[in-house]
Computed example of a mutant assay.
Amino acid sequence: MNYITFAQLYDQLMDPEIYESWLEYFKQRVSPNSGMVLDLGCGAGALTMQLKKAGFQMEGLDLSDEMLSLASERMSRANVFFPVYQADMTDLNGLGQYAVVVSTLDSLCYLANFAELGKVFREVYAHLKEHGKFLFDVHSVYQMEKVFPDYMYNYQDQNEAFLWHSYPTDVSYGIEHELTFFIKDQATKNYQRLTEHHYERTYPLANYIDLLKEVGFKKVEVKADFGRSSVKNDSTRWFFCCDK
């Protein structure tokens, strides 16, 4: 059996339309000639690559070596390159100044607590040029309290199966995702099982806005549905565009 990592499977799982929607949201708010953009929590670099191809100057940062290896492979296949850094987003020491910092696909929801979120906001603010922008998305409280608890999604074909089950936790606005893949070995007909648990947490919308303004952001725009609509009680994800 060819060894396959969870990172590879997770990268393959993502719907390309999500990146296309994020690209459009980003392009409506940032010009390609704005300057250098840092993709914070870039993962395997799928969105970073799309932004680079769209004319933006890109750098990527992620904590996962596996994900950054996939980003390097993606760059090699496309013959399109951008710098990537392996680091914790709570400490951006050593990085330069950016015109824009972007963090997508609820990467900030993986932070352990509100104190860590504050560290990231302060690090981003410190590494943004004057009048720079910070764009990110997070899960809403509605998503955490009404959609995710006991959510299940199963997929299978002849070669693989994927099971996703979400559980509530004893932490306010927290959720645990159990993600399991079964990959078929064509030679032996046996299956390789890969399982990971992901923990995410969000906070009331006012908490995000207050923290961003406390850090120093002058203007905070919050939308839903990739910026296409205003925030409602049943919005599942919040999209922020913050001006330094």
Rank of each mutant, 00 (worst) to 15 (best):
D137M: 04
A187M: 07
S140G: 04
Y155D: 08
F114P: 12
G174N: 05
E20Y: 00
E196A: 08
G55C: 05
L105W: 03
T180M: 12
Y151A: 09
F82D: 04
L117G: 14
K129E: 15
D150A: 15
K129N: 15
M49S: 10
S107T: 15
E116R: 13
V215G: 10
F81S: 09
S76D: 14
F226Q: 09
H197T: 08
Y203Q: 07
N190A: 07
Q28P: 03
A71C: 11
S69D: 14
L13K: 06
H197V: 10
D62K: 05
K189T: 08
R193D: 01
E116I: 12
G35M: 06
E17P: 00
L92N: 08
M67K: 06
C241T: 15
Q28K: 13
K146S: 11
K53R: 12
K189N: 11
Y3E: 15
P149K: 11
M144P: 03
Q50H: 03
Q12A: 09
R228D: 14
T236L: 09
V124M: 13
F226K: 04
N2H: 03
Y10E: 14
M58T: 09
N2W: 10
N79C: 15
L108V: 11
S140F: 01
T104Y: 09
F162S: 04
V231C: 11
L47D: 06
V171W: 01
F239V: 09
P16V: 09
Q12K: 00
G41E: 00
F162N: 02
Q186G: 02
F26S: 15
G216M: 13
N159R: 06
P16N: 10
Y153R: 11
N113Q: 01
G41D: 02
S103Y: 02
G216S: 12
T236K: 09
D185R: 00
V80D: 06
A71Y: 02
K53Y: 01
E130K: 08
F134D: 08
W164R: 10
L194G: 04
W164V: 11
E176I: 04
A161T: 07
W22T: 06
M89W: 04
E66K: 12
N154R: 12
L135D: 08
M152R: 04
T202L: 05
K133G: 10
L205M: 11
L9S: 03
L212C: 08
Q186W: 00
G174I: 10
Q97H: 05
Y98L: 06
M89G: 10
I175V: 08
F82W: 02
R122M: 14
R77P: 03
L40K: 02
Q12E: 09
D106R: 00
Q158D: 13
E214S: 11
F181R: 00
H131R: 13
L163E: 08
L38G: 13
Q50I: 07
D185S: 03
M14R: 03
G174P: 07
V84Y: 05
P32V: 08
K52M: 12
